[in-house]
Amino acid sequence: MIRVQREDFDLGQEYAAFADQDAGAGAIVAFVGRVRHMADPDQPKSDDNLIRSITLEHYPAMTQKELERIDREAQSRWPITSSLIIHRHGKLFPGDQIVLVLTASPHRDAAFEAAQFLMDWLKTKAPFWKEEETGAGTRWVAAKEKDDDAAKRWK
């Protein structure tokens, strides 16, 4: 299932509902992506490097479809019995939750791998763009090569 929303989500509630509708699954993996405190965590703490807020823009007509495509691809590659992706948009602050991925399977390997795959493909295919505000001003976040490399491992 796919949800694209401005509102926050509650991991406990989402997990409970997800686990409930797939009572036979022996393994459930949850991943939460959050807004970092530092624009570049490898650089020292400074006002220019501290994130004040981010704004996530997206392409509504495509986002839902693309996330569904990515979800179908995961279902076709691993024996997962359920999956859930929640992705937020709008203005968010350090520590805020951005994305939730839940995967369920009879075995943990499939649930772990499918969750990682969903995140890797989401990061390189789902039409979202982050604009970051720091002490240095506002700038659009550039795509990262390591995200492309991560997506490429799932040929």
């Binding site: 479809k65 693309e66 992705h87 390189t124 039409p127 979202f128 763009w129």
Partner: peptide, 24 residues
């Protein structure tokens, strides 16, 4: 749907132009 620059287009299509995506 994501396409490459050699993809055909025709009247009535919805074309979107954007930078590499940075969600998640």
């Amino acid at each position: 749907e994501h396409v490459t620059f050699d993809a055909p287009i025709k009247a009535g299509d919805e074309i979107a132009l954007f930078p590499p995506v940075t969600g998640g």
